[in-house]
Design a protein around this nucleic acid. Structure first.
Length: 122
DNA sequence: AAGATGACTAACT
DNA sequence: AAGTTAGCCATCT
């Protein structure tokens, strides 16, 4: 039988998650990327929501820098007063990401910009 | 099994 | 500036 096992259908989904996790792992310290961007880089354009799902289901074991993913407005996608929201903000601030009234300047803290800093200096 | 939900976003009011 | 709408689609009820 070609694909009667329940696991077979989940294979491609697992594959997508893995690609998303790989992209997130590639975000340098002190940088952030938004969900849509991560999706694009993972070869899944237009599927920002899938990135959120993938992060929610990421194995703890993997030690993903999940906190470096924020929404397209440069804001944390958890309520600012929620435990998760505060934890994410703390993690980011600890690596030098600056919040301007709950909002991060995505250009300033993009990995692209980090590369420019390396080449041209701050 | 069908409908709601959501760690989203771009495009419109 | 802030709210709504339409795409998105795997998971959860």
């Amino acid at each position: 039988m070609a694909n009667a096992s329940p696991g077979a259908e989940n294979q491609s989904q697992e594959e997508r998650f893995r690609r998303i996790w790989e992209v997130v792992e590639g975000i340098p310290e002190g940088c952030v990327l938004n969900y849509g961007e991560v999706a694009r880089l993972a070869g899944l354009p237009g599927r920002a929501r899938l990135v959120g799902r993938a992060l929610a289901r990421a194995p703890k074991k993997r030690n993903l820098p999940w906190h470096r993913v924020v929404n397209a407005q440069g804001k944390i996608s958890f309520a600012a007063d929620s435990p998760r929201g505060q934890r994410q903000r703390k993690l980011l601030e600890a690596e030098g990401v600056v919040f301007d009234d709950d909002t991060i300047d995505l250009d300033r803290f993009s990995p692209e910009r980090a590369m420019d800093r390396l080449l041209w200096g701050p």
